[in-house]
Design a protein around this nucleic acid. Structure first.
Lengths: 263, 263
DNA sequence: CAGTGGTCTAGACCACACC
DNA sequence: GTGTGGTCTAGACCACTGT
């Protein structure tokens, strides 16, 4: 009846459930509290401490345990719902979802993909020069046709086998993309190091047969099936950062994606 | 200095900016207020009332105009940021982003895709029966091997040309999937009509060459490049709903995706 | 009925960009 | 400085689920 909280029934609520021990938050950190909580819960889930199918503590209890407000805890949980880690039902509670492969590919690069898969990727720069933008490049980068843009062509290999030929076009204003830098890391990594925040992309995936030269480069048979991808990446201001036309050896690479329903 | 609000300086704030007129919210509706605001703003942006690049009113002003709290208005704006419609910068404001193609493909189906593209799709059911789950199907649907599952095989055409052969496996418990229903609409549409909430999916896209039979079915040349897709779809409880193995004529279809950074 | 998540409010303080 | 968005709090009421 009374809105006053019960004076420590049995155990200290801050150490009660199996949850809170690993979830201490650092209030001096610049990282938002809700994000710290979300990461903490994510570790508990992925580490198996909280079994799939089991219920998580409810918001009010958790906020009391962590000494945070309910909206803060709530925001963390909403984040995990977006990630597909947990499921919430009014009147029922919050349950941990059966674990899947879980790769949030979204805005990663082939380099990140391969490295995450345990294969150490290597890169050979085939071309690194300035060219006039053709209509496709001009449209994607939102510059006039024939504007000089940076072209980068790379051969990406994994475990000694060629996987893809990557052709990227970028505005001349971008810096820090020397050939040596490109051979030691991914393009997106270098862009992020320049302070560019990659925010969104549109991409088109298709397939076609390899030309003789492409087959030779990728060590495929003549006429082999290739995956093709065209992608335009935008920064957080909505400006185009990069446009790429890529081909992948279909025998050695597939695109894997996790989708979450919009809303 | 005083925390008291200024007593109606000049004009009534509720009719001041260009924004609020179309943004009246219905407090009796079961639709969340923040969502009503988000839709209203989206219409203003997509209708061109608010030009790309121009600033939106700030949160405090907008909340006063709409007579809503700041967090509510804020939530609407966060939604639009997720959709890629607007961009926010601390100390600067909220600006409308240059419009792109904007297709939130995420969890739509080929049927939706084709129809949205103006091509009226047609479907021919090639098979509709019960089969024992092989290892791939069993793994995806989380049932034991050899469990009887529903198999649906369809040929999807657009503008009279075959585009894809779709093979889907579903648990026997799913209803409402008669052959006639499947020929008049998309699978996802039928599932949603059954009250199933599609929430997430994992998919793998690859490429290979067509067999003689596949080429014949899709009216392609022998050995033509095909796009392949395997997708498992999950409902909002995290349970697998559907597993599909599909092939697409690469000359007639590509996958187009909009990605937003996950952080 | 009690317990859960879903929504909303009215404040507060801070970090950052621009003048 | 001034104004902006980013974060956080401490409540409130409601809708839905299960008993």
């Amino acid at each position: 009846m009374s809105p006053v909280q019960i004076p420590e029934a049995r155990t200290d609520p801050a150490t009660a459930g199996p949850i809170p021990r690993a979830l201490a938050v650092d209030r001096t950190s610049p990282i938002p509290l809700w994000y710290q909580v979300a990461r903490g819960l994510q570790e508990l889930i992925e580490g198996g401490t909280v079994a799939p199918g089991s219920h998580l503590d409810n918001e009010i209890l958790l906020s009391r345990q962590l000494k945070l407000s309910r909206p803060t805890v709530r925001r963390a949980m909403e984040h995990l719902v977006d990630q597909g880690l947990i499921v919430r039902q009014r009147g029922v509670g919050t349950r941990v979802v059966q674990q899947k492969v879980r790769r949030p590919m979204a805005l990663t690069s082939l380099y990140d993909d391969l490295r995450a898969g345990g294969q150490e990727p290597t890169t050979t720069v085939l071309a690194h020069d300035l060219v006039g933008a053709d209509t496709a490049v001009a449209l994607a980068l939102e510059v006039p046709v024939d504007t000089e843009v940076l072209r980068i062509e790379r051969l990406r290999s994994a475990a000694g086998n060629p996987v893809a030929r990557l052709t990227n076009y970028l505005p001349r204003t971008v810096e820090g993309l020397s050939a040596t830098a490109l051979e030691s890391g991914g393009l997106y990594e270098l862009l992020r190091a320049q302070g560019i925040v990659l925010h969104a992309a549109t991409q088109t995936v298709g397939a076609r047969r390899a030309s003789a030269a492409e087959a030779r480069l990728l060590e495929e048979t003549r006429g082999a099936a290739l995956l093709t991808m065209r992608r335009t990446t935008f920064d957080d201001h909505g400006r185009p950062v990069e446009y790429g036309q890529h081909i992948y050896a279909a025998t050695r690479y597939v695109f894997q994606t996790q989708l979450v329903a919009p809303f």
